[in-house]
Amino acid sequence: MTDMTMIEAIRTALGRALQDDADVVLFGEDVGIDGGVFRATDGLIQRFGAARVRDTPLSETVIAGMAVGAAAHGLKPVAEIQFMGFLYPAIDQLANHAARLRNRTRGRLSCPMVLRAPYGGGIKAPEHHSESMEAMLAHIPGLRVVIPSTPARAYGLLLAAIRNPDPVVFLEPKRLYRALSEPVSDDGLALPIGEAVLEREGGDVTLVSWGAMLMETRAATDMLASEGIEAELIDLSSLKPIDRETVRTSVEKTGRCVIIHEAPLTAGLGAEISADLAEHCLTSLLAPIYRVAGYDTVMPYPRLEDHYMPSAVRILRAVHNVMEFE
């Protein structure tokens, strides 16, 4: 076990995958000698060579589309989109090809590719560098969408994504790249995609969150505990598929739920979880389900960014509302 930040854990998982499987190739913008703009691939070109760690020309269409072709022809590409704001051209390839190739050929061809992209705000990046548009991707049938919230989960889930026989979008909360570290062992063990993590047990209210928002949510649970409110905390980890059972089981116990995400409120994944609970857990509910989310605004420039991001204070306010609901 070594203490690792999330960026180190990601780099370690990528190195492990390159080491273990000759079919794994990395490509993207600046992933070679520069090691990626966040250094996720730092040192990998030196270890594995320029044929397996490739700087592509600057084209998101090619990064995604070439991954589709390479995956269908036997490689396991792990492609990087430099920032989520530049992922939109890749959606054509994800939705129209990666996610359907298996289905439309009835299994003759498949697409074992991973598309990695840093997402989310909080690092005062220029415009177009801070969006959280995971719900757009989670809406695409045939994809999987994963977001880790700790270094160890990043390591295990990235290995799972790379080994998955179908396409996985792996979104990295860039605010967490260096924000926390924990012991991670480079044991090559993958974590299951599609399973949420019950981070903390509590009987009063269920908090569901993912990615960087776990920071605020964890802080909020601590503050709530000091008030005598025991929150159960779930890191969803997988946005598609969603581990509905874990969320339902928790809410059946607590009767209350607050969902926290950085992405805009409307048609965000909080709505999906809320609808699922309304359908399946209505009789357990003691209060309305609340969502604490980003506003339906364009992500503000860095000076106003903090005002956009859901804060622990907003989470507390929502929890107080559901606790006091009569």
Partner: peptide
């Protein structure tokens, strides 16, 4: 989807080269 097969061809060619 018009022209979207060309990136696939680049990817297949990459796999062949590799």
């Amino acid at each position: 989807p018009v022209a979207s097969q060309f990136p696939h061809a680049a990817g297949v060619a990459l796999a062949m080269q590799q």
